[in-house]
Simulated scan of single mutants.
Amino acid sequence: MDNIITLAHGSGGSATLDLIENVFRKYFKNDILSAGDDSARLDIGNAKNIVFTTDSFVVTPVFFKGGNIGKLAVCGTVNDLATSGAIPMYLSCGFIIEEGFSMEELEKIVEAMSVTAAECGVQIVTGDTKVVQKGAADKIFINTSGIGILPEGINISGRNAKAGDRIIVSGTIGDHGSCILLERENMGFQAEIKSDCAPLAGLVRALLEGGVEVHVLRDPTRGGVATTLNEIAAQSNVTIQINEESLPVKREVQGVCELLGMDPLYMANEGKLLIFVPGKQADMALKILRENRYGENASIIGEVMEGREPKVVLRALSGGLRIMKLLTGDQLPRIC
């Protein structure tokens, strides 16, 4: 591991995982943390169904097509609760604001948080504000933590992928990463690409209430679909195969990635789910997803293979196989 922190350590890829394993888990190690999911399941007194998560948001630019840092903060935390199967209930929010930041822009950010929280059915019930000197931060950073309730009988985890599972992505991939890249770098592309930033708790509830036996749920944010699938493969000790021809990618996103030498599979998403379900339930899950506005472009993209080592394999359009590894380096830092 590097002797200093680099932007790659915040990419969500291999450097991030090294940092977590070699520093944070080294000192914070406990059974709850070692589960490796995006939310922690807690037993508190007689309550054995509490789910807790936290996340920080440092995206630049603060405002982008399809949202802003406030909407992103609420969606990101609600989605981390939802991917455990929990019903999101309460959020906290902490603000670190740079001296000189516009009060008008702050109000727009807070209003977006309020509107998004209302859509999710959650309340923001506590928070904190710090202001730092000009130059000590980049405009505004937000931390949100969330608490949810896990319904009885739900067991969703990155450790639960099973041979024969079909893998579904709930919509087009790479939208958020491409949007942020274009707005940040001001490259002059004419493509109208919006962030997919969206709250997904309702989509998860529709699946579970529709009787789908969901084994794994994950939102492929930093590091994209390929990195998230590698994390799941390692957690469950399985081989995952995905099919290039089945990947839903918008033409504009594909075009930007080709021009810049990037891969949509490694681009961040902020409003998509990866869903592992038994093969016999895949069509039912797909039907439920496509009836929801946040899942209308859902697609089956691959499956979990029998008796293999943990890895992710892409079957290319040419018919050849390619190993998809964890993201290395800092493809696009400060994406969320």
Results as ranks from 00 to 15, higher is better:
265 L>P: 04
271 G>V: 03
34 S>N: 15
104 E>K: 15
307 G>S: 15
291 E>S: 15
251 R>P: 08
106 L>H: 13
97 I>Y: 04
246 S>C: 08
14 S>L: 12
54 T>E: 07
184 R>G: 02
32 I>T: 11
221 T>P: 09
224 G>K: 05
174 G>K: 04
157 S>N: 08
175 D>F: 00
250 K>W: 03
173 I>Y: 01
162 K>Y: 00
91 L>E: 03
291 E>F: 09
19 L>K: 08
95 F>R: 04
218 R>D: 06
102 S>D: 01
72 L>F: 08
152 E>I: 05
232 I>C: 06
152 E>N: 12
249 V>D: 06
249 V>K: 11
217 L>W: 12
141 F>Q: 07
245 E>S: 14
316 A>P: 03
298 A>W: 07
107 E>T: 05
195 S>E: 00
322 R>M: 03
20 I>N: 12
7 L>W: 15
74 V>S: 07
298 A>N: 10
45 G>R: 12
98 E>A: 02
249 V>C: 08
156 I>A: 00
46 N>Q: 00
91 L>V: 01
316 A>H: 10
273 L>F: 09
198 A>G: 00
37 D>T: 10
20 I>V: 13
253 V>W: 06
89 M>E: 09
305 M>I: 09
99 E>R: 10
248 P>Y: 14
110 V>A: 09
320 G>T: 07
223 G>M: 01
302 G>D: 06
149 I>L: 15
322 R>S: 01
33 L>I: 13
231 E>H: 09
194 K>P: 04
64 F>E: 04
180 I>K: 02
108 K>W: 05
199 P>A: 14
147 I>S: 11
167 I>L: 02
265 L>W: 03
13 G>A: 11
276 F>P: 02
311 K>M: 12
79 N>V: 01
239 T>N: 03
32 I>V: 09
83 T>I: 01
139 K>R: 15
6 T>K: 15
95 F>C: 01
186 N>V: 07
144 T>M: 12
10 G>N: 14
165 D>W: 04
300 I>M: 11
228 T>N: 08
318 S>W: 05
90 Y>M: 03
17 L>I: 06
240 I>V: 10
36 G>K: 14
279 G>N: 11
103 M>F: 09
164 G>A: 08
143 N>W: 00
100 G>I: 03
178 S>E: 02
50 I>C: 06
37 D>N: 15
35 A>R: 14
300 I>D: 06
8 A>N: 13
